[in-house]
Amino acid sequence: MAIFLGILLTIFLFNTNIFAAQLIPQFGITDEEIRMLVLRLRNEDINKAKHNQIVVNYQGHTTARDTKDNAKAPLFSTVDSSLLRKPTYEKYIALMDNYHFEVGKIEQSDNEERREIVDFIDAIFETRPWKILIEFLQKKKHPYAKDVPNFKRWIKQLWFDDYSRAKGVPDTSGFEHVFVGESKNGEIAGLHSWLRFYQLERNHTAELDYQGFIIKRFDILAMIRFIWKGAMKRTGGFFIGTSPEFEMALYTFCFLSRRGFKTCDFEIDGCPFSVTSYDMSQHNKVFVGTVYPSPGQLNEQCRNANRKQG
């Protein structure tokens, strides 16, 4: 009996230690370090949209349960075309036609599509946000970032390798879910990219119907409702005007430091935001399951900062 109780105690302590370890910030990254690093990423995102390069037309307010179309015009009134000609934007846009709309259909990449992924990863790794991110993770001795080639391999697995969301077939990836969007059971899943949303509004007007905003943070972040190819996104959010390299760096950083059990909290242009992320584990590999942003409480610093910009 004593032996049995001892075994139970050992199992309990072992499981408790695992649970406690999961509560520790991953790789000792503190909340303050997150705030400071995101501030650096934002400040050195030289490819982000400048003031007045993007004009947003929010129109009517809506809710996730609303059934009316409270926005007759597109969300984006104007986007400066020079943004789209930046190398990382061009390589990001080249990836948009590589994926099936519905989950449950096997994703099959040809050599050109695989080359486009490598080109995009190579391009973002040359930017300041990614150099800053790698330097920080190396100081933290994160095993993914021991050197650049190793980190590129991990980024490809986390974001671009296929796994299954339905029917047990390789039908999705972290990048497809977060940056492209997909349909599952008549609902839109993912699609947390302003650039993707703008491309759909511009090139596929008959397929995409913006129906109003739920929460807006000036021209920094939008929480919206829309219909795409007949499938509804009741609540979707994305930053506005951020570069592809900034978004990939931010979401990767939050995924590595706060996924699953805690949000990644920071400020952009005086406004508080958080990023939530979850992983997906299949076949002894870990992938990005989802990553998405949310607005924090609107404060005076946020109002004043954006009043000055206006």
Rank of each mutant, 00 (worst) to 15 (best):
Ala2Asn: 06
Ala2Tyr: 08
Gly6Met: 06
Ile7Ala: 01
Leu8Ser: 09
Leu9Pro: 14
Ile11Leu: 10
Leu13Ile: 14
Asn15Gln: 14
Ile24Tyr: 14
Ile24Gln: 12
Gln26Phe: 09
Phe27Met: 06
Glu33Ile: 00
Met36Thr: 11
Leu39Asn: 12
Arg40Leu: 07
Arg42Asp: 09
Asp45Asn: 06
Ile46Ser: 14
Lys48Cys: 05
Ile54Trp: 08
Tyr58Met: 10
Gly60Met: 06
Gly60Val: 05
Thr67Lys: 15
Asp69Gly: 09
Asn70Glu: 11
Lys72Asn: 10
Lys72Tyr: 11
Leu75Met: 09
Ser82His: 11
Tyr89Gly: 02
Glu90Ala: 10
Lys91Pro: 02
Ile93Leu: 15
Met96Arg: 11
Ser109Met: 13
Ser109Gly: 12
Glu112His: 15
Arg114Met: 13
Val118Arg: 10
Phe120Thr: 06
Glu126Lys: 12
Pro129Glu: 00
Trp130His: 11
Lys131Arg: 15
Ile132Gly: 07
Phe136Trp: 10
Gln138Gly: 09
Lys139Pro: 15
Lys140Arg: 12
Tyr144Cys: 14
Arg153Cys: 14
Lys156Gly: 04
Trp159Thr: 01
Trp159Gln: 03
Ser164Met: 03
Val169Tyr: 08
Gly174Thr: 01
Phe175Val: 02
Phe175Thr: 02
Val178Gly: 04
Val178Ile: 11
Glu182Leu: 03
Ile188Val: 13
Ala189Arg: 15
Leu191Glu: 02
Leu191Tyr: 04
His192Gln: 05
Arg196Gln: 06
Phe197Arg: 00
Phe197Ser: 02
Gln199Gly: 04
Glu201His: 00
Gly212Trp: 04
Lys216Pro: 13
Arg217Met: 10
Phe218Gly: 02
Leu221Thr: 01
Ile227Trp: 10
Pro244His: 05
Met248Ser: 12
Tyr251Trp: 09
Thr252Met: 09
Cys254Trp: 07
Arg259Thr: 08
Arg259Trp: 04
Thr263Gln: 13
Cys264Met: 02
Cys264Val: 02
Phe266Asn: 04
Ser277Trp: 01
Tyr278Met: 09
Asp279Thr: 05
Met280Gln: 13
Val291His: 07
Val291Trp: 07
Tyr292Ile: 05
Pro293Arg: 03
Ser294Ala: 14
Asn299Thr: 06
Gln301Ser: 08
Cys302Asn: 01
Asn306His: 10
Gln309Lys: 09
Gly310Phe: 04
